[in-house]
């Protein structure tokens, strides 16, 4: 009896060999393209030189980490990174779900398709171009926004010297860029919901709002949870492209908009040190790892089917 309850490793492999075989291509890929290069993680603890290569360069302890922690900014950029990501994740999730539900209920097929296509457009506009847009729209001299303010008799604003604007602008831009993308996921989740549920609810006399709150949202829960978990697992990884292109090296805004990735970029501009770059990456990885392990364990306790792993 015992052996039946706890079959061994090889027994399990033999029993489900077809399934494991089906997993093999992806597994091979990840071994070759992720786990083999992952050995390079040791660079964070090494004084890397080309003669000895990654694996045989001399160790240098935690030397590569020092710059980050003695900069006096480690705490600030870590908090900034987390705060921005939390805000981004929250509004992204809420708006994506909202838009997906609305679009799915729209009657006009054309309108549905057209509006959905429009929302996807920002995805194609790179942050470089977005930053050119911001510059032109908010330009102090000729920008649309300031022309408008002047026409109303107000003082023009200079967003590049006043950090407070960016607390609004960054989330709005993030939302603008990703809402179309995010709603696609929820839209396809809604498409997967069995129509019979709604029909039954209609017969029971439920109204639109009841159907959304009692059927759609609960059925979307697994999707929401997995996407949130995936987001939480990246909570320490900043949107470098976005921050770098929009804020750049603007010293007037840096304290409020500095994330780990931009601080590292700025610090290492003149040094070109793989070890130091890896060290910061390692710090982010470890924190992400700890956070996701904790969160995932909690989720698994509550509902094992929703957990990541």
């Amino acid at each position: 009896m015992k052996s039946l309850k706890k079959p061994g490793f090889f027994h399990e492999l033999a029993k489900n060999k077809v399934l494991y075989l089906m997993f093999l291509p992806v597994a091979v890929y990840y071994i070759l393209f992720a786990y083999v290069p992952m050995l390079g993680i040791v660079v964070a603890f090494k004084d890397f030189n080309y003669r000895d290569g990654i694996l045989f360069s001399p160790w240098n302890g935690v030397d590569n980490f020092r710059y980050f922690f003695v900069s006096g900014k480690a705490l600030q950029v870590t908090t900034n990174t987390i705060m921005y990501n939390v805000v981004f994740l929250a509004i992204y999730t809420i708006f994506s779900i909202m838009v997906a539900i609305m679009i799915s209920e729209l009657a006009s097929k054309i309108f549905k398709k057209v509006s959905q296509s429009f929302m996807f457009l920002p995805y194609f506009i790179s942050w470089v171009v977005v930053s050119a847009f911001m510059y032109n729209f908010f330009n102090y001299d000729y920008g649309l926004v300031n022309n408008f303010l002047r026409a109303l008799g107000n003082e023009p604003i200079n967003i590049y010297s006043e950090p407070s604007y960016w607390y609004i602008l960054l989330p709005v831009l993030y939302l603008w860029k990703w809402v179309g993308f995010g709603s696609v996921l929820y839209l396809s989740a809604i498409s997967g919901i069995d129509q019979e549920c709604y029909e039954a609810a209609t017969i029971d006399g439920a109204n639109m709002f009841q159907k959304i709150f009692k059927i759609t949202l609960p059925l979307l829960k697994p999707t929401v949870v997995i996407l949130l978990l995936l987001g939480v697992g990246r909570i320490l990884r900043g949107e470098f492209d976005m921050f770098y292109n929009l804020i750049g090296n603007n010293g007037l805004l840096i304290d409020n908009t500095d994330i780990i990735d931009t601080l590292v970029f700025r610090s290492l501009l003149g040094t070109q040190d793989f070890g130091m770059a890896s060290a910061a990456g390692f710090y982010q990885s470890v924190l992400c790892f700890l956070i996701i392990m904790i969160v995932n364990t909690i989720v698994r306790k509550v509902d094992s089917e929703s957990a990541l792993f």
Binding site: D63, R66, Y67, V70, S71, K73, N249, N250, G251, L252, I254, D255, L263, R266, S267, L268, L269, G270, T271, D273, M276
Partner: peptide
């Protein structure tokens, strides 16, 4: 002095450019 060089570089970018 790579730690100090990295940090001074970032301090200058932040505080000196304005």
């Amino acid at each position: 002095i790579k730690t100090e060089a990295a940090n001074c570089n970032q301090v200058l970018i932040q505080y000196n450019n304005p």
